[in-house]
């Protein structure tokens, strides 16, 4: 079953509507909230991983857009500033899902974006401030 990551931007007036409920109930989709920052009366942001059949997926997106939500494909990369990175490997120590690892020789950083859950633990842990999440 197809799985996609979406970056949703909510207008201020929309922030109270339970959209994930509707995605499940009305469109038979499986939403997984990776990140969310939604406050009543303010513009909100949510990164959602959605699994479902293509026709349900398209209908679900149409529903979100009809509700005034801006839907974009989510950034699928963390951004590493290679000039700043010293390959210490500390980010790999805090990456619970194991998305960031060192290669066998221990001298290259490997990023498996499918495992990343956008928790930002690496962003905070990096002593060189070399990692950013791009949206």
């Amino acid at each position: 079953m197809p799985r996609k990551r979406l970056d949703l931007t909510f207008p201020p007036r929309q922030a109270t509507k339970p959209i994930t409920y509707h995605l499940v109930k009305d469109f038979d989709l499986v939403p997984n909230i990776l990140r969310a920052q939604i406050h009543p009366g303010q513009e909100g942001r949510m990164v959602l991983e959605v699994t479902g059949r293509k026709e349900d997926f398209d209908a679900g997106i149409a529903f979100l857009e009809s509700e005034g939500i801006v839907v974009r494909p989510a950034a699928t990369d963390i951004c590493l500033d290679e000039d700043k990175c010293v390959l210490c490997g500390l980010c790999t120590a805090v990456c619970r899902p194991g998305a960031l690892t060192l290669n066998g020789a221990g001298d290259e950083l490997v990023f498996d974006k499918d495992k990343c859950v956008y928790c930002e633990a690496c962003v905070v842990a990096c002593p060189r401030r070399a990692i950013t999440l791009t949206f």
Binding site: V86, L87, C88, G89, L90, C91, T92, A93, L102, G106
Partner: peptide, 25 residues
Amino acid sequence: LRSGAIEVQGKKVPAGPISSLKKAR
């Protein structure tokens, strides 16, 4: 440690370095 996981008190624990092996080389 370099394998990425060690065993501590019977539990498998992910391990990560702070010292850069690439730079040391």
